[in-house]
Amino acid sequence: MKLHTDPASALNTVTAYGDGYIEVNQVRFSHAVAFGPEGTVAEWPVQAAAEITTSLLQQAAGLSETRRDPLDFLDEPEGGSPAHGIGPEVLIVGTGGRQRLLSQEVLRPLLMAGIGVEVMDTQAAARTYNILMAEGRRVIVALLPTQGDLPA
């Protein structure tokens, strides 16, 4: 399916998707990708939704795996930004042609860091990302291409 976008936009936008590919800014990718409104479109080393781990979600969201003490905010200067203000507000995960829910164990570390995680099929994820990105939200998307498993 071809999506239409504002051609003057300098932000990363999903411009199309189909069986076996995702197109971002009119560049076609045949592998999983992760990106936000600005920056590079990175290859995401996932072949299937069953392979998604906490570490891979953190990688997609641009987070380091270092553990943060939940009481560190007590040492921050008054009015300082919270730790979760650094990362995205939401990580959208497109799991291919069908929605494949992820376990709470996999999601918990991101939720504890203040990052919402929405899991949906890749088509819905691409459309949702484009809407949130256009609204100026801090959003990251990780998309698996569909592999001919689109619902009829």
Rank of each mutant, 00 (worst) to 15 (best):
Q123F: 12
E23L: 09
R28Q: 12
E43V: 15
A142Y: 01
A61C: 07
A8C: 10
T128E: 04
E78Y: 03
P88K: 01
E105Y: 05
I115D: 02
D75S: 14
L57M: 11
G80A: 15
E118F: 04
P151R: 13
L74V: 14
T66Y: 13
A61W: 00
H4Y: 13
R28I: 12
T13H: 05
V14I: 14
E78L: 12
A42I: 08
D121T: 02
D75K: 12
S103M: 12
H31Y: 11
Q58I: 07
E118V: 13
G94M: 05
A49I: 03
G18E: 04
G20V: 07
T66S: 15
L11W: 06
L74R: 07
F29N: 06
Q26T: 10
L71N: 10
P151G: 15
R28M: 12
L102H: 02
T128K: 00
L101G: 12
L63N: 03
L107S: 01
G136S: 05
E105H: 10
L3E: 04
G148E: 03
E65V: 13
G18A: 09
V14Y: 01
G96S: 07
H4T: 14
V33S: 05
V119H: 00
W44E: 08
A50L: 11
A152C: 11
Q26S: 13
R28C: 14
T53R: 04
P145I: 07
